[in-house]
Nucleic acid binder design. Structure first.
Lengths: 163, 163
DNA sequence: TATTGTTATACTCTATAACTATA
DNA sequence: TATAGTTATAGAGTATAACAATA
């Protein structure tokens, strides 16, 4: 049984200090690999940029959606972001503990919980914008405006397949 | 203090069943969000496609690199994939337990461990190729050949910034 | 001193099943 | 019966610190 991987010369293995020169094999042809690497690097840089505000990627997403849709149900916010009901509880609990988000009981359907930003939450969200913008600018430094637009477009068309 | 988020009409909140219509606020303009969503969807679909072979994304990456670079050091493989030394140990342990990878002591530097695929590992890697190709085709169904190439190019230029 | 592999550990994210209270 | 929120739990990925053996 043969593997569909290009052969590699043994000389390459000796230059251990240049990892970018390592032959990845079939992996290189799969978009999933490149997508995953970029997402991991992006997330790590985001976390680094948010060290002062202590707001994580998912939490910022929630706060952004709640800010744009005050009073929206907890489940609806989660569904918009691809977060499951069960996981929303802990995430919202953290934001409530920090007094960034308020759980307001709904008057009509007493099962649902509507979310809104507190004043502190709005301030925290605003404080995140500049660091995140700088983080994005750093990560996308090699891409011009058109390429950034196209990147988002391509990514959304992937997410749309099963998202 | 005001938030730089476009105002939202309350009517939108009533259409809960159409989550794609939810206003994401500033989140929508950040590439990191779209990157993360696509990566999560991609990873979930990958895991689903690999249910029979039980090979995970990272493990497939390791096997691909080892296949292309037989005898490469454990640390070098990890560095090429952005995996830390400490985490490589458990990952390789699993692959060794499944008899997919062999740890070969090196003759020169007695600290290093060189990795190679076993016959079973080569067979397992080959068995992964068709399911992964199908998975990639499904995820990239909305992208033509040029767009797929450009996607990988854009992602690599992001990773290159701090990867 | 520096590096390779290792161990231990913690945090985050995602997933599933089962419960409650409402509808 | 169906849904919203909740609880508990598990699995996977990543991160750091400290150690032994070796260079």
């Amino acid at each position: 049984m043969t593997i569909m991987v290009p052969a590699t010369t043994n000389e390459m293995q000796l230059s251990d200090d240049v990892d970018s020169a390592v032959d990845l094999g079939v992996l290189r042809s799969f978009a999933g690999y490149h997508l995953r690497r970029a997402a991991v690097v992006f997330a790590a840089n985001f976390a680094n940029a948010m060290q002062t505000t202590k707001v994580r990627q998912v939490q910022f997403g929630i706060m952004s959606v709640v800010a744009a849709n005050p009073g929206m149900n907890q489940g609806t916010v989660g569904r918009a972001l691809g977060i499951q009901r069960a996981n929303m509880v802990t995430l919202i609990n953290e934001l409530v503990d920090r007094d960034f988000i308020a759980r307001n009981g709904s008057i009509g359907d007493r099962r649902v919980v509507s979310l809104s930003l507190t004043a502190a939450g709005e301030a925290a969200l605003a404080d995140c914008l500049a660091p995140i913008a700088a983080h994005e600018e750093a990560m996308l430094a090699n891409l011009d405006a058109n390429e950034r637009e196209q990147l988002i477009d391509l990514l959304d068309r992937i997410t749309a397949v099963s998202g």
